[in-house]
């Protein structure tokens, strides 16, 4: 499969949501607590009305195949893939942008218009559409719209800048909210934890320290499974 074919194969998958239930997750690997919660692996807590709306949106198609491919190509220019974290296509960014464009209709003109404008620019300069021009020529087209003046409100900047800025925002958000992007970022949360303060090397790196008096009042994590009892003045006894 050449690059273009593989892009097509990756982005034209369905966005359907399965409702497969369910596993159990031990949320504290800890004999003190040993608490378990039931989890539904492929379900993300929608109400029936919300699910219906998602299904309706999935049935619509905002971008045609050419536009989706252009989005895919552009997103990979914006954020080139990197081993082992992949890139926007592997993170399903084009389908995410397709969905968001339908979910937030106010973005549609900028996206649809921006894509046509980009092809127009490519055709004028190089006689071909954007996705078919070599990377070097794509960069020539993008350089004038890739930077913006942070002091000027985005909505009064040129369409090209607005379009590219939106594409960059959606590409980054799509990538960094994906499994791959979260790995690349290094985010360690969203899982059971026992918070016991900032590691010493991090404190040192940023030049701060804990006040021993403050820390003395904080939770002793070895006793968190023991039921709280107080004296009549509110002093914790356990």
């Amino acid at each position: 499969m050449d690059r273009r074919e593989s892009i097509k194969a990756l982005i034209l998958g369905t966005g359907a949501i399965g409702l497969g239930l369910q596993g159990c997750k031990n949320v504290n690997d800890d004999p003190l607590l040993n608490q378990e919660i039931a989890v539904a692996e492929t379900y993300f807590g929608r109400t029936p009305e919300e699910l219906e709306r998602i299904e309706e949106l999935n049935e619509e198609q905002l971008f045609n195949e050419h536009e989706l491919e252009t989005i895919a190509v552009l997103s990979e220019v914006i954020l080139p893939p990197k081993e082992p974290f992949g890139g926007p296509i592997e993170a399903d960014v084009p389908n995410f942008i397709e969905f968001i464009g339908k979910d937030m209709p106010k973005l549609q003109y900028t996206l649809l218009g921006g894509l046509m404008w980009l092809d127009h620019e490519a055709n004028t300069a190089f006689g071909t559409d954007f996705k078919s021009t070599p990377l070097e020529q794509q960069k020539q087209l993008l350089d004038p719209i890739a930077y913006y003046d942070a002091e000027i409100p985005m909505k009064v900047q040129s369409l090209g800048i607005q379009f590219f800025s939106l594409m960059r925002n959606l590409t980054l958000t799509g990538y960094y909210t994906s499994e791959l992007g979260i790995k690349d970022l290094g985010y360690q949360g969203n899982q059971p934890n026992v918070w016991d303060g900032v590691p010493q090397d991090v404190l040192d790196q940023h030049g701060v320290a804990y006040d021993p008096e403050w820390i003395a009042k904080c939770v002793d994590q070895s006793k968190r499974g023991v039921i709280a009892e107080w004296d009549e003045n509110g002093n914790l006894l356990t």
Binding site: L21, K25, A40, F44, G45, T177, S178, N190
Partner: peptide, 11 residues
């Protein structure tokens, strides 16, 4: 579990 959003990932 059907309505739960806790511990869900954005993706």
């Amino acid at each position: 579990p059907k309505t739960m959003t806790q511990l869900k990932w954005p993706y």
